[in-house]
Design a protein around this nucleic acid. Structure first.
Length: 208
DNA sequence: ACCCAGGGTCATA
DNA sequence: TATGACCATGGG
Protein backbone atom coordinates (compact mmCIF):
# COMPACT_ATOMS: atom_id res chain seq x y z
CA UNK A 1 0.00 0.00 0.00
CA UNK A 2 2.67 2.53 1.00
CA UNK A 3 4.89 1.08 -1.68
CA UNK A 4 2.29 1.80 -4.33
CA UNK A 5 1.84 5.30 -2.96
CA UNK A 6 5.59 5.85 -3.10
CA UNK A 7 5.82 4.53 -6.64
CA UNK A 8 3.00 6.81 -7.76
CA UNK A 9 4.66 9.84 -6.20
CA UNK A 10 7.96 9.01 -7.81
CA UNK A 11 6.43 8.58 -11.24
CA UNK A 12 4.58 11.85 -10.91
CA UNK A 13 7.24 14.09 -9.35
CA UNK A 14 10.50 12.35 -10.18
CA UNK A 15 13.58 12.24 -7.94
CA UNK A 16 13.81 15.25 -5.65
CA UNK A 17 17.51 15.06 -4.81
CA UNK A 18 17.10 15.98 -1.17
CA UNK A 19 18.46 17.50 1.00
CA UNK A 20 19.66 20.62 -0.85
CA UNK A 21 23.04 21.44 0.70
CA UNK A 22 26.73 21.01 0.00
CA UNK A 23 27.79 19.45 3.30
CA UNK A 24 26.34 17.65 6.33
CA UNK A 25 26.74 20.73 8.50
CA UNK A 26 24.96 22.92 5.97
CA UNK A 27 22.11 20.41 5.99
CA UNK A 28 21.91 20.59 9.78
CA UNK A 29 21.84 24.39 9.61
CA UNK A 30 19.02 24.22 7.08
CA UNK A 31 17.09 21.79 9.29
CA UNK A 32 17.06 24.34 12.11
CA UNK A 33 16.39 27.38 9.95
CA UNK A 34 13.48 25.81 8.09
CA UNK A 35 11.43 25.29 11.26
CA UNK A 36 7.96 26.66 10.50
CA UNK A 37 9.48 28.64 7.64
CA UNK A 38 9.39 28.61 3.86
CA UNK A 39 12.54 27.12 2.34
CA UNK A 40 12.87 30.10 0.02
CA UNK A 41 13.57 32.29 3.05
CA UNK A 42 16.01 29.75 4.44
CA UNK A 43 18.04 29.84 1.24
CA UNK A 44 18.57 33.57 1.64
CA UNK A 45 19.82 33.08 5.18
CA UNK A 46 22.14 30.24 4.17
CA UNK A 47 23.54 32.31 1.32
CA UNK A 48 24.36 35.06 3.80
CA UNK A 49 26.21 32.54 5.92
CA UNK A 50 28.07 31.23 2.89
CA UNK A 51 29.18 34.71 1.85
CA UNK A 52 30.75 35.04 5.28
CA UNK A 53 32.19 31.51 5.17
CA UNK A 54 30.24 30.54 8.26
CA UNK A 55 29.20 27.01 7.29
CA UNK A 56 31.50 25.72 9.97
CA UNK A 57 30.65 24.65 13.50
CA UNK A 58 33.60 26.40 15.16
CA UNK A 59 32.74 29.67 13.46
CA UNK A 60 29.06 29.45 14.41
CA UNK A 61 30.15 28.85 18.00
CA UNK A 62 32.46 31.84 18.10
CA UNK A 63 30.50 34.44 16.11
CA UNK A 64 28.64 37.12 18.03
CA UNK A 65 24.97 36.18 18.51
CA UNK A 66 23.61 39.51 17.28
CA UNK A 67 25.79 39.32 14.19
CA UNK A 68 24.58 35.79 13.48
CA UNK A 69 20.96 36.80 14.00
CA UNK A 70 21.34 39.63 11.51
CA UNK A 71 22.74 37.29 8.86
CA UNK A 72 19.90 34.80 9.21
CA UNK A 73 17.19 37.46 9.45
CA UNK A 74 15.38 36.36 6.24
CA UNK A 75 14.61 32.95 7.74
CA UNK A 76 12.39 34.47 10.42
CA UNK A 77 12.58 34.00 14.22
CA UNK A 78 16.15 35.16 13.79
CA UNK A 79 17.00 35.76 17.45
CA UNK A 80 15.58 32.40 18.44
CA UNK A 81 17.27 30.58 15.59
CA UNK A 82 20.63 32.24 16.19
CA UNK A 83 20.63 30.66 19.65
CA UNK A 84 19.47 27.33 18.25
CA UNK A 85 22.23 27.32 15.64
CA UNK A 86 24.75 27.87 18.39
CA UNK A 87 23.36 25.00 20.49
CA UNK A 88 23.38 22.77 17.43
CA UNK A 89 26.93 23.80 16.48
CA UNK A 90 28.10 23.07 20.00
CA UNK A 91 26.63 19.57 19.79
CA UNK A 92 28.12 19.17 16.32
CA UNK A 93 31.60 20.10 17.46
CA UNK A 94 31.51 17.37 20.12
CA UNK A 95 29.60 14.60 18.34
CA UNK A 96 29.51 14.99 14.58
CA UNK A 97 32.62 12.96 13.87
CA UNK A 98 31.20 9.89 15.61
CA UNK A 99 27.75 10.44 14.09
CA UNK A 100 29.12 10.78 10.57
CA UNK A 101 30.99 7.51 11.02
CA UNK A 102 27.75 5.92 12.30
CA UNK A 103 29.52 4.60 15.38
CA UNK A 104 26.34 4.98 17.43
CA UNK A 105 23.04 3.24 17.12
CA UNK A 106 20.34 5.34 15.49
CA UNK A 107 18.21 5.60 18.61
CA UNK A 108 21.14 6.52 20.82
CA UNK A 109 22.18 9.46 18.69
CA UNK A 110 18.55 10.46 18.20
CA UNK A 111 17.96 10.73 21.94
CA UNK A 112 21.17 12.69 22.25
CA UNK A 113 20.13 15.13 19.53
CA UNK A 114 16.73 15.62 21.16
CA UNK A 115 18.45 16.93 24.30
CA UNK A 116 19.70 19.92 22.34
CA UNK A 117 17.51 22.96 22.95
CA UNK A 118 15.77 23.87 19.72
CA UNK A 119 16.01 20.42 18.15
CA UNK A 120 12.70 18.55 18.23
CA UNK A 121 11.70 15.29 16.59
CA UNK A 122 11.40 16.47 13.00
CA UNK A 123 14.63 18.44 13.08
CA UNK A 124 16.47 15.52 14.68
CA UNK A 125 15.16 13.06 12.12
CA UNK A 126 16.02 15.41 9.25
CA UNK A 127 19.60 15.66 10.46
CA UNK A 128 19.83 11.91 11.02
CA UNK A 129 18.43 11.10 7.60
CA UNK A 130 20.05 13.71 5.40
CA UNK A 131 23.26 14.63 7.20
CA UNK A 132 24.21 11.33 8.86
CA UNK A 133 22.64 8.82 6.44
CA UNK A 134 20.53 6.97 9.00
CA UNK A 135 17.33 5.42 7.54
CA UNK A 136 14.80 7.16 9.80
CA UNK A 137 11.47 8.61 8.70
CA UNK A 138 10.82 12.36 8.86
CA UNK A 139 7.26 13.36 9.75
CA UNK A 140 6.32 16.92 8.88
CA UNK A 141 3.11 18.96 8.64
CA UNK A 142 2.52 17.80 5.07
CA UNK A 143 2.80 14.15 6.05
CA UNK A 144 0.33 14.51 8.89
CA UNK A 145 -2.11 16.57 6.85
CA UNK A 146 -2.14 14.09 4.03
CA UNK A 147 -2.64 11.04 6.23
CA UNK A 148 -5.40 12.68 8.28
CA UNK A 149 -7.26 13.85 5.17
CA UNK A 150 -7.25 10.37 3.76
CA UNK A 151 -8.23 8.79 7.09
CA UNK A 152 -5.08 6.75 7.38
CA UNK A 153 -4.37 8.02 10.89
CA UNK A 154 -6.58 9.77 13.41
CA UNK A 155 -6.56 13.53 13.94
CA UNK A 156 -4.07 13.74 16.77
CA UNK A 157 -1.82 10.81 16.11
CA UNK A 158 1.55 11.38 17.72
CA UNK A 159 4.74 12.02 15.79
CA UNK A 160 6.06 8.62 16.83
CA UNK A 161 2.89 6.89 15.75
CA UNK A 162 3.10 8.30 12.24
CA UNK A 163 6.82 7.70 12.03
CA UNK A 164 6.40 4.02 12.93
CA UNK A 165 3.53 3.65 10.52
CA UNK A 166 5.96 4.41 7.72
CA UNK A 167 8.99 2.63 9.11
CA UNK A 168 7.05 -0.58 9.74
CA UNK A 169 5.81 -0.69 6.18
CA UNK A 170 8.95 0.35 4.36
CA UNK A 171 12.21 -1.43 3.60
CA UNK A 172 15.08 -0.18 5.78
CA UNK A 173 16.52 1.62 2.83
CA UNK A 174 18.21 5.00 3.09
CA UNK A 175 17.36 6.17 -0.41
CA UNK A 176 13.67 5.30 -0.03
CA UNK A 177 13.37 7.11 3.29
CA UNK A 178 15.06 10.19 1.86
CA UNK A 179 13.01 10.21 -1.30
CA UNK A 180 9.68 9.49 0.35
CA UNK A 181 9.78 12.47 2.66
CA UNK A 182 10.89 14.76 -0.16
CA UNK A 183 8.10 13.48 -2.41
CA UNK A 184 5.47 14.08 0.27
CA UNK A 185 6.64 17.68 0.54
CA UNK A 186 6.40 18.00 -3.24
CA UNK A 187 2.88 16.61 -3.03
CA UNK A 188 1.93 18.92 -0.17
CA UNK A 189 3.11 21.98 -2.05
CA UNK A 190 0.95 21.16 -5.07
CA UNK A 191 -2.04 18.85 -5.13
CA UNK A 192 -2.60 18.52 -1.45
CA UNK A 193 -2.28 22.21 -0.68
CA UNK A 194 -5.96 22.82 0.01
CA UNK A 195 -8.65 20.44 1.16
CA UNK A 196 -10.69 20.74 -2.02
CA UNK A 197 -7.68 20.07 -4.23
CA UNK A 198 -6.89 17.11 -2.05
CA UNK A 199 -10.28 15.58 -2.74
CA UNK A 200 -9.31 15.38 -6.36
CA UNK A 201 -5.78 14.33 -5.64
CA UNK A 202 -4.52 12.14 -8.44
CA UNK A 203 -2.78 9.87 -5.97
CA UNK A 204 -5.65 9.28 -3.59
CA UNK A 205 -6.62 5.81 -4.70
CA UNK A 206 -3.13 4.45 -4.20
CA UNK A 207 -3.79 4.39 -0.46
CA UNK A 208 -6.45 1.73 -0.79
C1' DA B 1 -4.99 43.23 4.91
C1' DC B 2 -4.80 38.71 5.72
C1' DC B 3 -2.66 33.69 5.57
C1' DC B 4 0.80 30.43 5.69
C1' DA B 5 5.44 28.18 5.56
C1' DG B 6 9.76 21.50 5.31
C1' DG B 7 8.66 23.53 14.45
C1' DG B 8 9.88 23.96 19.19
C1' DT B 9 9.77 25.78 23.93
C1' DC B 10 7.72 27.40 27.86
C1' DA B 11 4.00 28.83 31.14
C1' DT B 12 -0.25 27.71 32.82
C1' DA B 13 -4.22 24.56 34.55
C1' DT C 1 -1.08 15.82 29.25
C1' DA C 2 -3.02 19.37 26.98
C1' DT C 3 -3.82 23.75 25.14
C1' DG C 4 -2.03 28.60 24.14
C1' DA C 5 1.41 32.28 23.56
C1' DC C 6 5.41 33.30 21.47
C1' DC C 7 8.99 33.60 18.07
C1' DA C 8 9.21 37.02 12.74
C1' DT C 9 10.34 37.14 7.62
C1' DG C 10 8.69 37.04 2.82
C1' DG C 11 5.51 35.48 -0.79
C1' DG C 12 0.77 34.70 -2.31
Amino acid sequence: MLQKFYDALLVHFGHQNWWPGDSPFEIAIGAVLTQNTNWNNVEKAINNLKKNKLIDAQKIISIDSEKLAELIRPSGYFNLKADRLKYMADWWHKNAEIALAQQWELNHIREDLLKVKGIGEETADSILLYAFDYPTFVVDAYTRRFLVRHNVVHEKASYTEIKYFFENHLPHDLAVHREFHALIVALGKTFCKTSSQCENCCLKWHLN
